[in-house]
Deep mutational scan, measured.
Amino acid sequence: MASQGTKRSYEQMETDGERQNATEIRASVGKMIGGIGRFYIQMCTELKLSDYEGRLIQNSLTIERMVLSAFDERRNKYLEEHPSAGKDPKKTGGPIYRRVNGKWMRELILYDKEEIRRIWRQANNGDDATAGLTHMMIWHSNLNDATYQRTRALVRTGMDPRMCSLMQGSTLPRRSGAAGAAVKGVGTMVMELVRMIKRGINDRNFWRGENGRKTRIAYERMCNILKGKFQTAAQKAMMDQVRESRNPGNAEFEDLTFLARSALILRGSVAHKSCLPACVYGPAVASGYDFEREGYSLVGIDPFRLLQNSQVYSLIRPNENPAHKSQLVWMACHSAAFEDLRVLSFIKGTKVLPRGKLSTRGVQIASNENMETMESSTLELRSRYWAIRTRSGGNTNQQRASAGQISIQPTFSVQRNLPFDRTTIMAAFNGNTEGRTSDMRTEIIRMMESARPEDVSFQGRGVFELSDEKAASPIVPSFDMSNEGSYFFGDNAEEYDN
């Protein structure tokens, strides 16, 4: 783990906690998980779902989305002020799938948001429990990260689609708070800032007046979040320049895209947490497990152990491969979309394939898809080993990566060399080191050039047997250095459309 220093740990961010010791953190995270579980059980009762239907990941996603929508204050306010045809701002819903006479049927349900809020609060001892809501947002974000390569979004903001390893959390809503900021990748933060800068260039009043003052505060806050992700002084200094700019424009845009590229080699610290679907927490609570009393951590053995003992089902389209669908969801559960496939294969105990080789589309089923041909199958979400999630980018030494994705962002704290394609990355730096950030740029390029592919990161860190909950005997895996390590390699994943 990167030293926490003055930073709060993510469990504290996750639970809005002030400084807590490890036991208190485990208890408050457990409380959050228990609340999600209780809410899910109650919703299944309301909807009269069978046990099997309640364990269907598509039903879980609909129920999670309903509660997130019920608590989305800004959108609710907007919907009330701008009524649109056929949208009731006070209601929320989605597809629920039921097994009827041996076939899967889709039923569109509609609930009062007020009623959903009441059920959620009741499951969370009367609190709004925003930490639990954020947790579900991060699960949705991790699922998107594993399912889609955001080529269009990258290109629109002047970045290269091969930089997708920097895009963790790119679909997280803005209201996801400190826990959300911690899991956002460098590219995601750059993209958010670039969008602001572009608006400022096109709209003279963007930075002016009372609204402009708020915009400015948001801009500086985002700059500080991004600065905190960088691990070298030169990158941090460049972020200070971007933040202090009187009138952010093209120079800042250039600096930010430069920094994003540099992060492929001088990786930023991005938190990883295993956020599971509500249909995993519900049955665990129903079986009598007391998360608050037992304590829970999002970055240790607990999620692995929970998945070892969970039964989750998914709808499967006619030509999809259930094992591939399982891999997709497994990666999402562990926030591992940008991790090295060699490491993932070792931990999972079966070969993890790149996205383009998977015969599976996303987990969600569109409303126009034919239910007649839908089957369902068990998702295999178990693992051979477990490993500690990392909050750091690993040290800054790398190795060759593949054509589709030119770097990785480690999820697990496991000893290995970190793949990246130096030639491709360095070719993108057209040696432009003039301007006010020239000395920093020169320094950053120097550090990137001296990074050695064969150097090892996370020295001495290994994986653990599932029986080793105290992480007492690390097993340090050895990897084939020459092997392909990137998930979005030469990829044809669908595009994420909101």
Rank of each mutant, 00 (worst) to 15 (best):
E495T: 04
M137I: 14
A179Y: 05
W120T: 04
C279F: 11
T15S: 04
D145C: 11
G17Q: 07
R436F: 02
P283A: 08
S402M: 02
M1W: 12
P354M: 08
Q42S: 06
V329C: 13
S262C: 14
A70L: 01
F429I: 07
G102H: 14
S269C: 15
V285K: 04
R441M: 10
N250K: 07
S359G: 13
Q415E: 14
R106F: 11
E372K: 13
T232P: 04
E372D: 12
D145N: 11
G435W: 10
T147R: 02
G93F: 04
G404V: 14
C44T: 13
E24N: 07
K273G: 03
R204V: 02
T437H: 06
A22D: 08
C223Q: 12
K87Q: 09
F304T: 01
Y281Q: 11
A129I: 05
A332R: 00
W104P: 01
E380Y: 09
A366V: 09
Y10P: 14
T390G: 07
V312S: 15
Q327W: 07
D340Y: 13
T23H: 08
E380G: 10
P453E: 07
Y97C: 15
N498R: 15
A263M: 06
S392Q: 04
Y148W: 09
K103H: 12
K348I: 09
S3L: 14
R382Y: 14
M43W: 05
A337I: 15
R106D: 06
K236A: 02
I197F: 12
L266H: 07
E339N: 03
T151N: 06
N76P: 00
R452F: 10
G228W: 11
D480M: 08
S376Y: 09
D421V: 09
L259G: 01
H82G: 06
I63L: 14
K348V: 00
I301H: 15
I116Q: 01
Q459E: 11
C275T: 09
M331Y: 00
I225E: 04
V242M: 09
R8M: 05
F39W: 15
H272S: 07
R391S: 07
I96T: 11
T151K: 13
L315K: 00
N430R: 08
L379C: 04
G86P: 06
P419C: 13
V299E: 04
